[in-house]
């Protein structure tokens, strides 16, 4: 007997679903689905390829692809060790640090941008030191785009990997130690392979977050075509002058988002 069959039998014997639940439910579904459908309908498919070929669009596409790819690499390279520290090392302030890592998840992106300016801006705490020492400033550069993307994407990655590390537990670390493995070997050969599903899910989440990033980027890096103008920034700009371009670009991001969701399907969309 499967739960599926049970559900079906119960559904037909327990009576109709009440309107008090059906109506608001349908309204919620409409609110979520209708704009997506209209976006698809309003996309200027005739000129779709022409739009893709314009310099502004190509630059924004290239920059978005580049920034999101580097963001994922930085998240994996720096976020994996951070997740391991949070999951495995009992250091003072660990709870506090874990809370701090999660803050960008709920922080309005514009606020994230302002926060980045205070730290890395021309007159920011770290930014001014950097400027005095090297003459180099970060804001309004492609580097700033990557930093803003990393800032908002990293928490998704770290929390996903930390969860996977906690789920696989310290048990196998102990086994590896009794077999003479040092912690680095254990991390490489045991801990990381066992946490791989979390690493992959975290990387996809971070990448998706980076693709759509707008608020922190435009605040910290500006909106300069070719250097800091990503897809969302271009959409924002085009919406005022050329709505067709905005829809074309939006369509591209929608397709990418749906593809991301499909990649994560096994993790989240399958009901238990």
């Amino acid at each position: 007997m499967t739960t599926h069959a049970t559900g079906r039998t119960l559904g037909s014997t327990l009576g109709r679903p009440p309107l008090a639940l059906v109506l608001p439910g349908a309204l919620a579904a409409a609110l979520l689905v209708v704009p997506l459908v209209t976006l698809v309908l309003d996309t200027p498919w005739g000129s779709f390829l022409d739009q893709l070929g314009t310099r502004a669009v190509r630059d924004a596409l290239r920059l978005t692809a580049l920034a999101s790819a580097i963001t994922v690499v930085v998240c994996v390279a720096l976020g994996t060790p951070l997740a391991w520290l949070l999951a495995r090392v009992d250091f003072p302030g660990r709870t506090l640090l874990r809370a701090a890592v999660a803050v960008p998840l709920v922080l309005p992106p514009v606020v994230a941008g302002v926060a980045l300016v205070t730290a890395l801006g021309r007159n920011g705490l770290v930014g001014s030191l950097l400027r005095d020492a090297t003459g180099w400033t970060i804001p309004y550069t492609t580097t700033a785009v990557v930093i803003a993307h990393t800032f908002v994407s990293m928490p998704f990655y770290v929390l996903s990997v930390e969860g996977a590390l906690r789920a696989s537990g310290e048990r196998y670390d102990v086994v590896a130690a009794t077999l003479g493995a040092d912690r680095w070997t254990t991390f490489r050969r045991v801990t990381l392979p066992l946490a791989m599903p979390g690493v992959i899910a975290g990387a996809i989440l971070a990448w998706a977050r980076s693709l759509g990033e707008f608020g922190a980027t435009i605040t910290f890096a500006g909106n300069y075509p070719g250097t800091t103008q990503t897809m969302p920034s271009l959409i924002y700009q085009a919406l005022q002058s050329d709505p067709e371009v905005a829809r074309t670009l939006s369509m591209i991001l929608l397709v990418v988002s749906v593809a991301t969701l499909a990649a994560l399907r096994n993790r989240w969309l399958t009901t238990p």
Partner: peptide, 20 residues
Amino acid sequence: RLVRERSLGFVFQDQSLFPH
């Protein structure tokens, strides 16, 4: 001595074979 520096073999109750 750290665990890994001890010359020992441990057979755990649940085997604890590395699943990967």
